[in-house]
Simulated assay, not measured.
Amino acid sequence: MNKRKIGAAYEMQAAAYLKKKGYRILEANFRCRFGEIDLIARDGAYLVFIEVKYRSSLKDGDSLEAVNRRKQRKIIRVAEYYLCMYQEKADLPCRFDVIGIEEERIRLIRNAFDCGS
């Protein structure tokens, strides 16, 4: 299985996990010229941009560590583009969450970073 298919499978697993936590998934794999956001959801009043990272082992580091400052800036840029495209959502409070998946373990970090990072 190629990396894109593997990633899609884990993103679906993350979406199911988030739904159980009360999130409402609005978009999966939102792409634009600046990059991609894995999942976009509503969690109560918040519009949440979610990055999903999977690691089959810890030899390449923790899955959550993969969302470094460079990746965060890219996600923020895509989120800004999304908000420009969907003006009706521009006034919603926004949050950036990260889901790390390692083997069978799923970890959610709410508000993992902000636009000032």
Rank of each mutant, 00 (worst) to 15 (best):
G61M: 00
G35S: 07
R31T: 05
K21I: 06
N2L: 05
I99Y: 11
Q87D: 14
V67L: 05
I25H: 07
G22H: 06
M1G: 07
K21S: 08
D38I: 12
M85K: 04
K89I: 08
A15N: 09
A9C: 07
G100T: 03
A112D: 03
N29Q: 06
G100I: 06
V98L: 03
I40M: 13
A45R: 14
K53W: 04
E103R: 12
Y17P: 08
C84H: 15
Q72I: 02
L92H: 03
F30W: 14
A14E: 11
L83F: 10
I6L: 15
I25F: 01
K3I: 05
I99H: 06
Y54W: 15
K74D: 02
K59G: 02
Y86T: 15
K71V: 03
D38V: 04
L18Y: 10
A45K: 14
G61F: 00
L92C: 10
G44E: 09
E88C: 03
L39M: 10
R33Y: 12
F49L: 10
D62N: 14
D114F: 06
E51M: 12
V67M: 02
E88S: 13
A28Q: 13
I50H: 04
I6S: 03
S117A: 15
Y86F: 14
K19R: 14
K5C: 08
E104F: 07
K21R: 06
F30M: 04
R42W: 01
E104A: 13
K74F: 00
E104G: 12
K89L: 15
R31W: 10
Y54N: 07
D60L: 08
I75M: 11
N29G: 12
I106Q: 02
R33H: 11
Q13V: 13
S56F: 08
G7E: 14
V48Y: 04
L26P: 00
